[in-house]
Simulated assay, not measured.
Amino acid sequence: MSPQTSRPAPLRRTDFKAFLTIPTRWMDVDIYGHVNNVQYLSFFDTAVNSWYVENGLLDPVKSSEIFVVVETGCHYFAEITFPDTVTAGLRIERLGSSSVVFRVGLFTGEALETAAHGRFVHVLVDRPTRRPLPISEQKREVLESLTA
């Protein structure tokens, strides 16, 4: 398969289940005048962890179990600039015994298609040992609200 045929297309807002608005910052912009690619992964991380906190799955300071990133990837379709507001859309593509595969889409303004979207994989671990843990039924029920 050639690179042209394997490249995914932008996704639409309707492809996502939950949303978080994140303002861009002056420091996010690189010398080329757009938000630097590394910031897109920061937006992913902010969106997913904010959703965990908002839904009672994570207390960043006190939780004995935490989610750690084991894989990320991003496809870029349009530039994000400053000042702009990014809306991060979330959905879960796969819920494993200890892992969660998120699809995160980044939208600018009122755009209906993603400026970028990517894969963000978390594994639930014991905070002190960093060993994987099974996702409890209580957590699983909350996570299932984002399944595609």
Rank of each mutant, 00 (worst) to 15 (best):
V68K: 05
E141C: 06
P10F: 04
T114K: 02
F19N: 00
A115P: 09
V38N: 10
K62I: 04
G56P: 05
V70L: 05
T14D: 15
Q4C: 06
R25Q: 14
S42A: 14
V29H: 08
N49C: 10
V101F: 04
G33M: 06
R140Q: 05
E110N: 14
H122P: 08
S42T: 13
R94W: 10
E141W: 05
D30S: 03
S2M: 08
D59I: 00
L57I: 13
S97H: 12
N55M: 08
T108P: 02
F43T: 03
H75A: 13
R91A: 14
A115F: 12
I92G: 15
Q39D: 04
Q4S: 12
L90F: 01
E141I: 08
D45T: 01
L11R: 15
P132G: 04
H117P: 08
E110D: 14
R140E: 05
V38W: 05
E54L: 10
F120Y: 15
V121K: 09
A9S: 10
I31D: 07
G33H: 07
S136M: 01
R103G: 10
I66T: 01
R130T: 12
F82E: 02
V61N: 11
R91M: 04
A88C: 13
F44V: 09
S136T: 14
C74D: 01
G96H: 08
L57W: 06
S6C: 10
A78T: 07
V68A: 09
K139P: 03
L11V: 03
S136N: 04
G109Q: 03
E144Q: 14
L112S: 14
T85D: 13
F102H: 15
D15N: 11
F107A: 04
L106A: 02
A18C: 03
L146T: 02
P132E: 03
Y52N: 11
I22G: 01
E71M: 09
H75F: 03
Q39L: 12
V142E: 00
E93P: 05
R12H: 13
V86Q: 04
H75T: 11
R127Q: 11
A115Y: 07
A111K: 13
T72I: 11
T85K: 12
D15M: 03
M1Y: 06
T108W: 12
L90V: 04
F44C: 11
W26D: 06
P3W: 12
V123H: 06
S136W: 08
G105A: 01
S50I: 00
V104S: 02
D30E: 04
F43R: 03
Q138T: 15
T85L: 14
R7V: 07
E113H: 10
G73W: 06
Y52G: 05
I66S: 07
P3E: 14
V101D: 14
T24I: 03
D28G: 04
T147Q: 13
V100Y: 08
V38F: 13
V38H: 08
A9W: 01
A47T: 01
V69E: 05
T114I: 05
R25V: 05
T81W: 00
V123K: 07
R25M: 11
G109F: 02
T85F: 11
Q4Y: 09
L41G: 05
L41D: 06
V38M: 10
D59K: 01
L11N: 03
